[in-house]
């Protein structure tokens, strides 16, 4: 397979410091392996429910989320493991949540589609398409009304743009000038219906119609994602209101584990794999002498070890006690 790198940028000097590039490389590779492992554990019956894998889209989570500061928030759709991990949520606890165990991020109450860790600013995965867009606007409102200055990165798929809430949220965000980045991961399919068949226009045009800056970028190029999201963060942080990014990306696996993938050809997947985000960054770094074969093997080995550690942690974590069933239905004063 011939590779054409997705990562662009001027020849010569790398755009970011070597350590940061290596961190991106490691994290994207880690998310990829984490997801493959989760898929494997699903077929072995260790993980149940719906499982939506993020493989192929790693550059979006890693590039965008690392443009944020720690105090900033991420709110995402249900294909959310990668976002949680990039936001600093302990992946061991993410895997334990997929297993439904007591040490999971929600103690087994949420599962794959609902990964939350408020201590890390991970405000969740939302499993009702587009429901989190208005919630992001509210977070932005709180940020500006309380003068806290945190930015909310709201990540959703191309399937969201047909929902009424998409338009309600975009409109409100501009009216209220909230610091929210709307980040659309356009992976070309809303489940099995192609994006071309479900939208009569182009996504950035919709955002532009509500009077906010809107760009379309290459979501397979982690450096471009990072660069463009940084611009968006600056825009939001300086009080100029919301910003819209459409990142063109591709998911390698089906919509969920139960997807027979009758709507696309294997060739199409192979075509996109030629511009693989991880391989692209690796080539970029290799050309600049920042990673060689040996170093890459070391990274891969570390990834393998770290993912195995997540699995071991999840396997060892106890089941939540049945006696906790009624906990946290409502919050009563003094609860925590």
């Amino acid at each position: 397979m011939t590779l054409e790198t997705a990562v662009t940028g001027a020849p010569g000097e790398p755009e970011l410091p070597a350590e940061q590039l290596e961190r991106f490389l490691y994290e994207m590779a880690f998310i990829r392996r984490f997801e493959e492992k989760a898929g494997e554990m699903y077929t072995r019956g260790k993980i149940r429910g719906f499982l939506h894998l993020y493989t192929g889209q790693e550059a979006c989570a890693v590039g965008a989320i690392h443009a944020l500061e720690e105090r900033d928030k991420v709110i995402a759709h249900y294909r959310d493991h990668g976002h949680a991990i990039a936001k600093g949520v302990d992946p061991k606890r993410v895997m334990a949540e997929l297993y439904g165990r007591a040490d999971g991020t929600s103690g087994g109450r949420g599962g794959s589609m609902h990964i939350y860790d408020t201590s890390k600013g991970m405000m969740g995965g939302y499993a009702i398409v587009t429901a989190h867009l208005p919630v992001a606007v509210g977070l932005g409102l709180a940020s500006s009304m309380k003068g806290e200055g945190f930015v909310t990165l709201c990540i959703f798929g191309d399937g969201s743009v047909g929902e009424g809430e998409f338009h309600e949220a975009l409109n409100l965000s501009v009216l209220w000038k909230v610091p929210v980045i709307f980040f659309c991961e356009n992976n070309l399919y809303g489940m099995g219906v192609s994006f071309a068949e479900s939208l009569s226009t182009e996504i950035p045009k919709l955002a532009a119609a509500y009077n906010m800056p809107a760009v379309s970028i290459d979501g397979m190029d982690v450096l471009e994602v990072h660069r463009e999201t940084k611009k968006a963060v600056e825009h939001c942080r300086s009080g100029k209101g919301p910003y819209f990014i459409e990142a063109m990306t591709y998911r390698y696996r089906g919509h969920s584990m139960s997807d027979p993938e009758l709507y696309r050809l294997k060739d199409e997947i192979e075509e996109y794999r030629r511009r693989d985000a991880i391989e692209s960054l690796r080539l970029y770094m290799q050309e600049r002498g920042l990673v060689d074969e040996q170093r890459w093997r070391q990274i891969e080995e570390r990834v393998e070890r770290d993912v195995e550690e997540c699995v071991a942690f999840a396997e060892a974590s106890p089941q939540p006690g049945i006696e906790t069933l009624f906990e946290h239905v409502t919050k009563e004063s003094g609860d925590d």
């Binding site: 929600s106 103690g107 109450r109 949420g110 860790d117 405000m123 969740g124 946290h328």
Partner: peptide, 8 residues
């Protein structure tokens, strides 16, 4: 509140 195990 429930799905976050009390976090939110």
């Amino acid at each position: 509140h429930y799905m976050t195990n009390g976090q939110m």
